[in-house]
Nucleic acid binder design. Structure first.
Lengths: 229, 229
DNA sequence: TTGCATTTCAAACATTTGTATGAAACTATC
DNA sequence: GATAGTTTCATACAAATGTTTGAAATGCAA
């Protein structure tokens, strides 16, 4: 069963190299050199380069998705069958952000790999991502239960914006760091999650204020604020 | 001056092909075939493939950035030297969203190309994007003028989230469409811009409500909402 | 037209890449 | 310990790709 060793060595080496240098300029030869195995081993164990990448990505995706659903389930049991919208959003963005951000995680190959996958988007990964919709539907369903009166459209936009903030923060953390000259602390993952969840819930619950047009109340709020300053 | 004709033909063909099929599987030979020019023409006129891609991207980027700054300037003149935070956010995300979304724009090669550039992130484009920080600083400065008392950190996070929602909507519009089963109207660009701007301003002005902890008021709001339903 | 610079062209180059092959080494079962 | 199945290995293959080359064509000024 030394075959498992080779397999694992390839997976580890590939993940490390892809994480460090991106999918674009890492060849199979680089990988087998790093893993100290023969070139043909990749095709023997995985069939093709794309299948190797796919296996790497699905492994990590399944991990994240499972964490998400676990958090969601815990929140629902905690709330007697119905999770709060805040907890749902937290279950949605928490695992991803925790996995990819933070100072301790800086050395985590898995995290850096997933960031790469989020940035570069190579064909085998794109194919897998397309199936992600089914997973998101579970969150949409939970949100519907948490906000029964809410229009479905608003719900999807809220879900979409939550993922937008989470993923964009992962993708562009370097830029945000540079733009803010280090003022934005990207190591304080808890605070980032709080921030994303807060804004998401806000986006989802806006328009609930009675006797205001659906999409405008906060603009008024902003104007009042400026007058106060 | 037939050289300009060749140059333009290459640029147009390249933009079209990249927009349609992505950077990954469009070769120089595909481009010159589409443009009806000789293979060597690309290297003669642009130096290299990467420089061709870079030229395509900078052209479109400069366009968008100019539109943004024009809107910002107009808003500032309109407000007597100081633009409202809402107008600033609108100037930030409006041009991009208008450029890449909408039914009329579906046929726009430029728009589809920029979406590709946003999704795939190939090296020459990444290099250019890194310089975008200087451009964003102008918006940060305008925001600082509009919200003098606000902490810089909050300001950067607000800017960051606004771009997150805009770009993620462009990147993942297909997925949102599928997830919402067509309920989210991605052709109504005005409404989308309003939505992004509203949430952004909300994120920026949150915590301004007196006697509430900085990052939590809306959670309470959310809970109240659920009780009402 | 002559002469010079620019542009086009076909062809070849030089690598790089993922993949396939067939023999050798190894492992486990009987 | 022989045998069948698995795994490893060096090597070769085939295709694709960006780039270069040097000659031919074209444009333009004197």
């Amino acid at each position: 069963m030394a075959s498992d060793q080779t397999r694992s060595a390839i997976l580890a080496a590939a993940e490390r190299l892809y994480a460090d240098r991106g999918f674009g300029d890492v060849t199979l030869r680089d990988i087998v050199a790093e893993a100290n195995v023969n070139l043909a081993a990749v095709n023997y164990h995985f069939g093709s380069k794309d299948e190797l990448i796919a296996e790497l990505f699905v492994t990590r995706s399944i991990q994240t998705n499972r964490e998400r659903l676990n958090e969601l389930k815990a929140a629902e049991e905690n709330g007697g069958g119905r999770a709060s919208i805040e907890d749902i959003m937290r279950a949605l963005v928490g695992p991803t952000l925790r996995g990819c951000l933070g100072p301790d995680r800086e050395g985590s190959t898995a995290a850096r790999f997933m960031i790469r996958a989020s940035i570069e988007s190579v064909p085998p990964i794109r194919r897998i991502k397309n199936r992600e919709v089914d997973h998101l539907r579970k969150f949409a369903a939970a949100m519907r239960r948490a906000m029964p009166g809410r229009d479905d459209t608003e719900l999807y936009w809220g879900l979409h914006f939550a993922l937008a903030m989470a993923h964009h923060t992962i993708r562009e953390k370097e830029r945000l760091l540079r733009l803010s000259e280090g003022k934005c602390d990207l190591d304080d993952v808890r605070a980032i999650i709080d921030r994303v969840v807060t804004v998401s819930v806000m986006a989802l619950t806006m328009g609930d204020v009675p006797s205001k047009p659906a999409l405008r109340p906060v603009v008024v709020h902003g104007r009042l604020t400026r007058q106060d300053l």
